[in-house]
């Protein structure tokens, strides 16, 4: 049996918001350590890897591994019904046909209970080996979201160029070009505002702007985002959770 209670429903709301436009159906795999999701978008360009660690829950219990096959659009309709500050409890039997979603208001005596039908989904869990990256950038997630939104208005591709001194985001479209250059710096007072650039080898990669626009839907999950890049390889974009992470692996574009 699974019984997981969040102190606030906001975390699950943000998680669903962050992934529902990239994947429609996915398995939530529940183990004693927490909940994981791995899913690939229909075009097989973007992979989502989510871990909501046990410590993200106020109370968590999962005696046996349980798989919840969830339609995220339906789940989102229910999860939106809770207030962000409500307790959120997920309950499922060992071989469940549905999952119970319970919201509890902290001040009033209001309890809202929903049941979501589960689906039987294929689960081909992918073992992603530890990848080697040539450059790592950590920056404020809101800044990365703004750069993505701004440059996407010019082109359907977004180029990321990393040198020793800086990282340059660049787009080249029909009516014009744009770029944003960031230098590494440390903000002692607000560490989350810092920009950290670690580069072993210079990087010049091009990505589909629409996929990065989907990735930055994770912005509300974390103050900062870490971007890991390697030549002609998928990039890793990571938003840290209080216990766990939301990672996106994005295949690049390149000349054949």
């Amino acid at each position: 049996m699974l019984e997981g209670k969040f102190e606030e429903s906001s975390l699950m709301k943000k998680v669903v918001d962050a992934i529902k436009d990239s994947v429609k159906l996915c398995n939530f795999n529940c183990t004693e350590h927490g909940v994981t999701v791995q899913a690939v978008d229909d075009s097989r360009v973007l992979l989502i890897s989510l871990l909501i660690g046990e410590a993200s829950f106020e109370e968590y219990r999962c005696d046996r591994n349980i798989t919840l096959g969830i339609d995220l659009e339906s789940f989102n309709k229910i999860i939106k019904n809770g207030n962000s500050s409500d307790f959120l409890t997920l309950i499922a039997e060992d071989s469940p046909d549905n999952v119970l979603i319970i919201f509890e208001d902290k001040k009033k005596d209001r309890v809202s209970e929903y049941s979501l039908k589960l689906m039987d989904l294929d689960s081909d869990f992918l073992q992603i080996d530890d990848m080697e990256f040539d450059a790592t950038i950590t920056m404020p997630s809101s800044e990365f979201a703004k750069i993505t939104r701004d440059l996407k208005t010019l082109s359907e591709s977004l180029q990321i160029i990393v040198t020793k001194e800086n990282v340059k985001f660049s787009s080249d479209g029909d009516f014009g070009t744009g770029n944003v250059v960031l230098k590494g710096f440390v903000d002692m007072d607000k560490p989350d505002e810092s920009i950290k650039i670690d580069m072993a080898r210079p990087i010049n990669l091009t990505f589909g702007a629409k996929y990065i626009a989907d990735i930055v839907k994770g912005t509300s999950l974390s103050e900062s985002v870490t971007i890991k890049l390697a030549d002609k390889s998928p990039a890793l974009f990571e938003y840290k959770l209080p216990s766990g992470f939301l990672r996106f692996y994005l295949a690049p574009k390149f000349d054949e």
Binding site: R44, L47, I128, S233, K253
Partner: peptide, 14 residues
């Protein structure tokens, strides 16, 4: 022109 790659090219099990 840049071609979009898929993850299957990099992760064999996809």
């Amino acid at each position: 022109h840049h071609q979009q790659q898929t993850l299957g090219r990099f992760f064999s099990s996809l």
